[in-house]
Design a protein around this nucleic acid. Structure first.
Lengths: 342, 342
DNA sequence: GCTTCGAGCCAAATCGTTTTAAATTTTTGT
DNA sequence: ACAAAAATTTAAAACGATTTGGCTCGAAGC
């Protein structure tokens, strides 16, 4: 059923019908109601592609998905989906096999200029991210999930990684730990730098010297968690506490600790960052995992919301949101063992 | 830059330019080459929405994403992305907050009739799935990831869950286990039924009676893995082996076993299904996890491929793929403890 | 009582392509 | 060298909506 035919059946012009359905003011309330009802009854719905052509709007928010199987990603998207349900806006996932961020830049360019999306969400930026520069240059609306240090004005949503890690580290220091190892995220990403800063600042507050041998970087996998933790535990003196970048990392750390015949929460304390996954909960681990916590799903929902605001005309420069992170203490953190204290 | 302007600059008609770029045969090779080169040089790209309007094609494959944070989902999509890279086809994720499958049916209807996608992928079907019936009725192309028992002809891709679980169970029986508990997926889904059948058949082959107290159903979370395993271990006589539905479930099972002071691989054997996640590998678990294994990412890539074939005109009735599942034995399975053997 | 105004509706232009059907040019056969 | 056939190219008609600008008609202003 097309507009023309539908309008004919109603005895109205296509113009009026279109306006009635779009909620324009110059159509009488009575007519609008009739049109709306008949549209449902006769099953008329505007052809989306015609609408897109004439309005220039795409009705979708773009997200680039790399080949790294980011488990966070699904949660974030699920949050977006939650917010977008009923909004008549979809999520368009643009495939890429490029591992390196820089190689992905042209893809963002194509996505922005292709007319397939109205805005994009940029994830895990570097401090000086080419994607941001490009999108700004193109004048294309985007929301940054994370932060960068560029002076290009833009909308962003981030969690306070720095403060989270600073508090986590401070807490370990309070418990008497002095050699605290950190398994951070991929090198070069802003959030990794923020976490690094939080870690260093906490040490500095107590006048404890920073030891580069206690910090590593890498993707959030159980494998790296295990390998890094194993190698840390071979040091003498060995660290008595770990700050882990993710739940998966924490799983690896737990295993490494156990494989050395040590006990998490007694011999070795562990704090990790928890994005709150429905399928893997810090509270259920044994021992339960102390964590800095912030819901990835909530971030996705809010991100979608902010993008909608952006598209509605709210200036990007107004959209800056820094979320606090909870620190939840459970059984995996305890006083530093006596013999290890200085 | 629009077609008209671009054509004018080339001294050709819009028609010829359009044909040249779309690779139609009735344009000379020389002209085609010139057009292609100039398009790159001048940066001309057809307006996607105009193309969509006139061709009726959407250039996207639809996927419905519920609010259950399925960690498999990201891997599957990532596989799709891998195959779709360079194809000029996107993945359109349609949000829903409806938990129940039946409630999602109208969404599939809207998606199919909205013109936003050319085909959809339907996940985790029930044996008699309303979504399949609807899509068939609408004559809309779709690929089923999983299987159903409907007589509606349709394309599908599935892994051989039944055989996988039968072999896993048989192997445990070979090792002398007699009380084998199974933590299956959500009730009602075809794959859960297939796994159930594989489990029962293996028992039947040895003349071992089926005990319903040894089977549970639920989502794939560490929490359920833990809770179910705990409660199984409270039975007397307790099971000596577990077949777990997922890696997350297995994590829970490991914890439950340890929390009872038992040792995985010695006191209790565990086999789980592994979808092959980059961030959580069966081989790295301690003890390493015996698993039935099939790559979710590969399935996503193949699914995208099959959808492409479907859209290219290959009959849906020809597209049936049943993937074998590897059984990989590691340290988590061992002989049944003496005292437990009958 | 005549003009002005606004509410409500409509005809036609527009968005930027693809594709049908026809026109032109080039090649081929004799 | 000429007609017929084949190879290129093109003008114009879709595709299905939104939107500009204009039209009609009754109410309000004076």
């Amino acid at each position: 059923m097309k507009l023309k035919e539908f309008a004919r059946q109603l005895g109205l012009s296509p113009t009026t019908v279109s306006r009635a359905l779009s909620g324009y003011p110059e159509v009488s309330e009575k007519t609008r109601k009739r049109v709306a009802e008949e549209a449902v009854r006769l099953g008329y719905r505007p052809n989306i592609n015609a609408v897109r052509l004439v309005t220039g709007r795409a009705g979708a928010i773009g997200v680039v998905m790399g080949r790294t199987g980011e488990f966070h990603f699904a949660e974030f998207m699920s949050g977006m989906a939650e917010r977008l349900d009923g909004e008549d806006i979809d999520i368009l996932v643009s495939p890429t096999t490029d591992r390196d961020l820089t190689d992905q830049v042209p893809l963002y360019g194509r996505l922005a200029t292709s007319g397939r999306v109205d805005a994009v969400i940029v994830h895990s930026p570097k401090p000086n991210d080419e994607r941001i520069a490009l999108l700004h240059e193109l004048g294309f609306p985007f929301l940054l999930h994370g932060r960068s240090e560029t002076d290009v004005p833009h909308a962003w949503l981030d969690i306070d990684n720095e403060s989270a890690v600073r508090r986590a580290t401070s807490h370990l220091l309070d418990l008497g730990h002095r050699r605290i190892a950190m398994i951070n995220g991929p090198e070069g990403r802003t959030f990794s730098l923020h976490r690094d800063k939080g870690y260093r600042d906490a040490l500095e507050d107590r006048g404890i010297p920073f030891d580069p041998r206690l910090v590593t970087h890498g993707h959030f996998t159980d494998e790296l968690g295990f390998r890094f933790a194993r190698s840390f535990l071979e040091q003498t003196p060995r660290p008595t506490a770990f700050v882990a970048g993710s739940m998966m990392t924490a799983l690896g750390v737990y295993r490494a600790v156990r494989s050395r015949g040590l006990v998490v929460g007694r011999d070795i304390s562990v704090i990790a960052h928890d994005d709150v996954f429905p399928y893997l909960t810090a509270d259920n681990m044994v021992p339960s995992l102390s964590a800095t916590r912030s819901s990835m799903r909530a971030a996705g929902a809010r991100a979608a919301d902010l993008v909608l605001q952006l598209l509605a005309g709210r200036p990007a420069t107004e959209i800056h949101e820094l979320w606090p992170v909870e620190l939840i203490l459970r059984e995996s953190t305890g006083p530093a063992p006596r013999e290890a204290q200085s």
